[in-house]
């Protein structure tokens, strides 16, 4: 009772039942939880952004290659830091969401209107989708996840950067 009461009055309180979004990846539905506390939503805008989510888009390797060539997008790598250092899409920003909390993601400099593409290991990996959902929750308006991810990128002989910097 104390726990529930404190959660109710706390500015960092969360819904008792976890809110989530159903995202269809190819033929499979996956549930992606929404972790924003009331305060964090409120801080961003004076409305409940969770109810205003647009549908995030799934894009494949062909489309990603075209967008990469144009250079009008920002890639977010949701894999571990170790994997990122071993190799990543040139220019991609590392956001290892299993290692850091959403609160610690430092993307304050990026405009909400930028085209964002998230990726992780491949089709079996859902980190890119989780990150995409989070980014859309906090207000990014053009969020896409790269379905084939890293395995698809290197499988098509694309450029690769190594090290801890984009």
């Amino acid at each position: 009772m104390i726990a529930l009461f404190f959660n109710k009055i706390s500015p960092e309180g969360i819904p008792v039942i976890t809110k989530f979004r159903n995202i269809k990846i190819q033929d499979t539905n996956i549930k992606v939880p929404l972790f924003l506390s009331a305060k964090r939503i409120h801080k961003k805008k004076d409305i409940d952004i969770v109810n205003e989510l647009q549908s995030i888009k799934e894009i494949n390797i062909e489309k990603v290659q075209k967008i990469f060539m144009k250079g009008n997008c920002i890639f977010f790598d949701a894999r571990s830091t170790e994997n990122y250092i071993d190799g990543h899409i040139p220019g991609a920003i590392s956001i290892p969401i299993e290692e850091i909390g959403f609160d610690e993601i430092d993307i304050a400099d990026i405009d909400f209107t930028e085209k964002i593409i998230t990726y992780c290991d491949g089709e079996e990996c859902h980190l890119s989708v989780e990150l995409a959902v989070y980014l859309e929750e906090i207000g990014f308006m053009n969020v896409n996840y790269f379905i084939g991810g890293w395995s698809s990128w290197i499988g098509n002989d694309n450029q690769v950067s190594k090290g801890s910097t984009p």
Binding site: A3, L4, F6, E12, I14, I17, F35, G101, F102
Partner: peptide
Amino acid sequence: ILFPARFAEIIYHYKVLPIEMLNIIAI
């Protein structure tokens, strides 16, 4: 206690609980 959303997120990454239960467990 102070940041239940963050704790729920950590529990989620263990991938053992149904998503609907994450928050109540974190609380």
